[in-house]
Design a protein around this nucleic acid. Structure first.
Lengths: 242, 242
DNA sequence: CGCAGACTTGAAGATTATCAACCACCGTGG
DNA sequence: CCACGGTGGTTGATAATCTTCAAGTCTGCG
């Protein structure tokens, strides 16, 4: 009947969320209209400036979340992967494009009745994810504002590796990363050319390599040391009080 | 009896939130322990790395939200003012220090029962504020990554002016801003020295001035034009579905 | 083969940081 | 009253970093 809802319930219980809903929580969530949608690679899923789209839980694939700025520049906000929530604003402040084929769960409240009125459990889960997203955005800000390009770039790939691990996708020392150096540059606040040189440095120093759409972390110990990477901000613990 | 709760309810109905709770919403919120606290200027209200502090609604004063990075650098995450929510994470990812005397409402769930279980209304309000905070953080990221220092600086002061207006604190063409050029630099991703030169440029071009802890927007039209500032991301509209 | 998109390299120029002073203001204590 | 120290702000010279411009290379694919 509501196949999407049942799949969504299973999704919540798998990594990275691993929620354990009670009977009431499950019943509450079943009262919310949830749909599962498939977007082929290259689809624009959400567009900046548009109002009130549903909240998106990515269930598989990679998506690029970005802002097209009025000065002609572009900012890549995030490389979104399985388990990530892309929550909507009254007016979307970013666009989302599927980079690979992508499957998402879409949730939208009806008749001006907020989701939190349907399910306090889902509200709680969403607040945890939104808090984590905020932490990630803040860490990106720190990265761009206060780390040098080499460390900055290494940091981003380390973060991505940890998030993949959390989502249960591999060990993280080697992973697919289907984005261009231009995408990377727009995430790091550099030019594509400079990003290219930074990647070469990282490769020549034997630290890591990004070629042919795959990342290899060759010397994780030194990468951690030079970036002083601490994954605490990615934590998704149960003891969040929201 | 619960003076703080009643004051908090009034706070919700004033700018910038202007919420209109129903009778049930009010009863729900009365079931939550809320305290009002006063922090003199210079107090450290929250500290990075510490677990599980309450959520903070700033009711008056200015606070500085920042990260002390392990590479010795500092990032100023936000200049928080009246009406802002500083939501907590499982592990705090930033510190907060009162810059002026500050009054806040502090809300903390008890016994592992999430706030959303007490009040779907408060959960909804918090999700709206968290979404706005996320939009602000993303815009700051765009600002630092993809705008030049002059526009970047002007943008920050324009944003602050709009947020003050939303909170009902003055017209915004002239306002107190009790932070140093060093604080500003750590928010903009520049050195203090370069920030000083940028401020001089803005002043010499007759665009705006920041001296003696007060900001004057002298030529708002040109500031808006050069930054292409669009306050849409600060929107706090009722039609949010979370 | 030839094209398009992504990547790579070198040289030159612009921007931003660093270093080293110095000024201005303010509250304190002699 | 005034010297003093501390904080915050200002300036110039120099060095490092990053961008821009211009020109390719590589690869997959029709």
């Amino acid at each position: 009947m509501w196949a999407a809802t049942e799949k969504f319930l299973r999704f919540l219980q798998q990594p990275p969320l691993e929620l354990i809903p009670s009977g009431k929580d499950i019943a509450d969530i079943r009262s919310i209209p949830i749909s599962e949608r498939f977007y082929p690679a290259g689809t624009t899923i959400a567009e900046e400036g548009r109002p009130g789209r549903p909240h998106l839980f990515i269930s598989s694939g990679w998506a690029l979340s970005y802002k097209s700025m009025s000065n002609g520049q572009r900012l890549v906000v995030d490389f979104a992967q399985r388990g990530d929530l892309i929550s909507s604003s009254p007016i979307a402040d970013r666009s989302v494009r599927s980079t690979t084929d992508v499957t998402v769960f879409e949730i939208e409240a009806q008749n001006h009745r907020p989701l939190s009125a349907y399910s306090s459990y889902l509200a709680h889960a969403m607040m945890r994810l939104m808090t984590r997203n905020h932490s990630i955005a803040t860490e990106h800000l720190a990265n761009v504002a206060r780390r040098r390009p080499l460390e900055r770039t290494a940091f981003l790939f380390l973060e991505t590796s940890y998030r993949l691990q959390q989502a249960g996708d591999g060990t993280g020392d080697r992973y697919d990363f289907p984005f261009t150096q231009g995408d990377l540059a727009d995430a790091l606040g550099l030019t594509a050319i400079h990003t290219n040189r930074v990647l070469r440095d990282l490769r020549e120093q034997g630290l890591m390599s990004f070629r042919n759409w795959t990342v290899e972390l060759l010397d994780r110990r030194n990468l951690l040391e030079m970036t002083l990477f601490d994954p605490g901000y990615l934590d998704l613990r149960e003891d969040f009080v929201g």
